[in-house]
Design a protein around this nucleic acid. Structure first.
Lengths: 225, 225
DNA sequence: ATGTTTGCTTAATAGCCCTAAGGAAACCTA
DNA sequence: TAGGTTTCCTTAGGGCTATTAAGCAAACAT
């Protein structure tokens, strides 16, 4: 477990590669993140990168995981459910290229991206679990749900260790998909035909979320419990 | 307005190009849609495509508009709001590559994609307008909305000719962003960690939508008015 | 019948991903 | 400390890509 000099140098180069790749992404767009361009940026030849990644795909995957983990850490610093949601949007607005990079690409099962996605989702879920423990919010009656949906919810409720009953799991996932849609649309400018400023749109969305989860809506800055 | 022989040949080649590009997209993924590959598929040289498109970007844009218009036409054949939503998902599930191609890319103002997006949105909006005319659904009190949001809603309500009051416009856009999020997540497999079959999830979403819009939920196949 | 426009070709530049072959430096070990 | 091994990096090269340029032939217009 000793870190030799070589290990440290390697780590430093790896960091430089990540930095250069991210810089290329944010300044010149996703298409500019090429093996050769990253190498040039770092000051080594293109093929040298193959000592760090098996190819372009693996670099892309590593970047995706790094971005998603950064976002996940960011969310963890937020206090309360609404501020967690705000932290999500704030990060997306501050890092639109990275957000798009993460969330507008197909997720393939088995890849590292998949595990990072679960770590991310857990942060959102933990917030809802806390709300649920304190004061359960209204959930649909499990008997009213279609059997096909019910089974999946029961199954996933077990997968996450029974922290939430199946119907509450459904609420979490519904909340997440709503947030996902709204923030993706903002980042991709899909709603520009109607909205020029998405900030109040997002806050109104949060108001709806608060009402659905039975918590008080409080604007940003204050510290809701 | 006479179509000369040359015009007809040109149109035929253009169609072949579109078909070939789409075939490459669906069978080999977005990265396979290259000028050269499309040319090969059609049976002409790569540079010959420059007589039809100014470059790769314009081909991409043309494809996006064609896909979006096809989806829009598909939605127009649906009967009633819920079936319109179902038609959206059905098309997305049947054509995941095309749906992703359309909706996971940034929209740039001024491009043809922008106008196609407005035609698309109008189909959804028309459905909601019909519902509103028959029986207005509950909307938030305009005075309760943040001024920044209110102004944008008022403005867009005017842009679309006052068919819907500002608060109802907000409901339309909220519905659209919810649908967008859910269908994108399905196409991109973003919810695979929890759901293996999204069909009942989508139906449950429709149930919520129906309740919010004050219409009766009826499962697929039947003909809600 | 003649001139122009159009559609296509090949050639060429410059970039991409990736593999192969080989040199130099750092590391480990005897 | 010397020798062998591992690691990092290089250049060269094949086969892609987008795009521009130059030129030929056929269709069109007059």
């Amino acid at each position: 477990m000793t870190t030799s000099r070589r290990d440290r140098v390697r780590k430093a180069t790896l960091d430089e590669i990540h930095d250069a790749a991210r810089r290329l992404l944010t300044t010149k767009g996703p298409a500019a993140v090429t093996i050769n361009a990253v190498g040039r940026e770092v000051g080594i030849s293109g093929p040298a990168l193959y000592h760090y990644f098996s190819g372009h795909d693996e670099l892309v995957n590593a970047m995706t995981v790094a971005f998603l983990d950064e976002l996940t850490d960011e969310l963890r610093t937020a206090d309360g459910f609404l501020n967690t949601c705000r932290a999500l949007r704030d990060w997306a607005v501050a890092h639109p290229a990275e957000f798009g990079w993460i969330f507008t690409r197909p997720v393939v099962a088995g890849a590292a991206r998949y595990a990072a996605g679960m770590r991310f989702e857990q942060v959102i879920r933990d917030q809802v679990v806390a709300l649920w423990r304190e004061k359960p919010f209204p959930v649909p009656d499990l008997a009213d749900l279609a059997p096909g949906l019910r089974e999946q919810l029961v199954s996933y409720s077990e997968v996450i260790g029974g922290e939430l009953p199946p119907a509450a799991v459904h609420v979490v996932l519904t909340c997440w998909s709503g947030l996902y849609g709204l923030v993706c649309m903002e980042v991709l400018h899909q709603l520009d035909f109607a909205y020029s400023d998405m900030a109040p749109v997002f806050e109104e969305h949060l108001r709806g979320l608060a009402s659905r989860l039975g918590i008080a809506y409080s604007s940003a800055g204050s510290t809701p419990r």
